[in-house]
Every structure is written in C-alpha cells, then in structure tokens.
C-alpha cells in the first residue's frame, strides 16, 4: 500500500448537543478505493464537509501531502486537488454538458484564465477526454437539466474527471443507477484507481461496495467502529446488526 495522500486524524464536529462526527481518523492512499459505510445519520457526509472546508471542524486535523488543509476555504481545498461530488449532484443546470465540464477546468475567478493558448488547449483536451470517458460526447451540447438521471450522474463524474484532482470524495455516486450504468460507473472508477487517484466513496449499495472498495470504514454515530477489508467488515454480525437494525435502514 502506498503512503496516504490525505490523512485525517480525530476529526470532530458537533451541532448543538449532537456529536455528528466524533474523532474520525481516515487515511486515503493513492490508487485505492475506501468506502464509508454506515446507517443514515452516521456522519459520512459531514466527514466530507469537514475535509473540503464546507464545515469547520471543532477538533482534529486533515493533512494533504503533509500540508494542513484545515480552515481553508472550499475553493482552496479544491485547487489543492480534492474534488467532490454531491448526493444531489448540484449540476449547472442551465449550462450545456460541455460547459459544465469546461468550467471544471477553469479555476481562476478573473476575467480570463492564465496560461494563454497552451493552457486553453490543455483545458479543452481535459474536457473532451472527460466527455469521452463518461460516454457523454453525443450529449455534449444538451443542457444538464434535460439529461436523464443516469447521465446527470455521469456528468457529475465528468466534472470531477476534468478537474484532474488526485482525491475524489464521492457521495453516493452509484445510487439510483440501473445495472448497465452501474457497470459503466464501476469501469470509470477502476480506471481512475489504476491512474493513482485516491477515492473515498459513501455508498449504501453493498454490492457496489463489495465490487469496488479496497477498504471499508464503518461509521456509526460519528465514529469509525471498524476499518478493514470489505469481506471482514461486511461479514461482521455486530456491524450488520447496526447497519440493518432499527436505528438505521439501508437506503
């Protein structure tokens, strides 16, 4: 296993009296898929929000290649190479598919992008590559809002691909996908893993987890109860009881 790119230690965050995340430690190595599994309300999305700077942690640290990213604004964390998807996708609904992806390659907020023609060609190449890899080439000029559900999910992945991030935080990327789309998604993820992307995904579909995850971190009530190989975690009767028990239902 290679050295982790992102290391979180003791991440904690409370909302009022509720401890949403209580001392979560997590390491994401390059070329590995880590699945965050747990019942609803376990704190999985909150962990993502703490890493990306959308929420401030009460305690704990997050180091990206040895540099702390705690307290940084979300756009700065993103520019350092952490990309994320959202459960509700948050596409740029009134923009074309190609513009959705293109804008993921443009990070300067200024009137123009730096780097001149060479950088522009590289951005265009990244856009076209993301379109091709997600199978969206034929829909490139369609507006995001007019896409079918599965294609919207792939557009959300295409934006991440085009952003050329080394860490992907994916929030339920395969939920609601039919079998064919799920296989396409699996292939996309495996290719990224081969290219050395450190992937962390929140997923309720245990078939997807079994197929794609190298490791599982099982979260409950804001804490990592267990971490390890998928088989060991998923066969643990205690964890299964929590996952399928009356406190939370698999969505």
């Amino acid at each position: 296993m290679s050295a982790p790119i992102l290391v979180c230690e003791g991440l904690s965050r409370s909302f009022g009296g509720v401890k949403a995340v209580a001392g979560v430690s997590l390491a994401l190595p390059a070329g590995q898929v880590t699945a965050l599994v747990g019942p609803n309300g376990a704190g999985k999305t909150t962990v993502f929000n703490l890493i990306t700077g959308n929420l401030r942690a009460d305690a704990g640290s997050a180091m990206l290649r040895g540099r702390s990213i705690m307290g940084l604004a979300p756009h700065k964390v993103a520019r350092m190479g952490v990309a994320r998807s959202f459960q509700d996708l948050r596409l740029f609904t009134h923009m074309s598919v190609r513009d959705n992806i293109r804008t993921a390659t443009e990070t300067s907020a200024w009137f123009w992008q730096p780097g001149g023609a060479t950088a522009r060609r590289a951005r265009e190449a990244a856009t076209e590559e993301a379109l091709a890899r997600t199978g969206l080439l034929e829909l490139a000029e369609a507006r995001a809002i007019d896409l079918a559900y599965a294609e919207r999910k792939f557009l959300s992945m295409a934006r991440i691909l085009a952003a050329r991030a080394e860490i992907w935080l994916l929030d339920e990327p395969a939920s609601g996908l039919d079998l064919a789309s799920r296989l396409r998604f699996g292939a996309l993820l495996k290719e990224a893993r081969r290219q050395g992307v450190a992937i962390c995904l929140i997923e309720h579909n245990l078939d997807v987890v079994t197929e794609l995850a190298d490791r599982i971190a099982f979260l409950d009530q804001g804490q990592v109860l267990a971490e390890g190989e998928p088989e060991a975690i998923l066969k643990d009767p205690k964890l299964a009881a929590i996952y399928f028990g009356d406190r939370g239902e698999a969505a």
């Binding site: 604004a73 979300p74 756009h75 993103a78 596409l91 740029f92 804008t103 952003a163």
Partner: peptide, 12 residues
C-alpha cells in the same frame, strides 16, 4: 446554478 458545486471545483 449551484454555488457550492462551483466552489467545490475551485472557483473563488
């Protein structure tokens, strides 16, 4: 269209 997603893609 989606401020938080724009931020997550590195936009200030």
């Amino acid at each position: 269209d989606a401020e938080s997603a724009a931020e997550a893609l590195g936009k200030n």
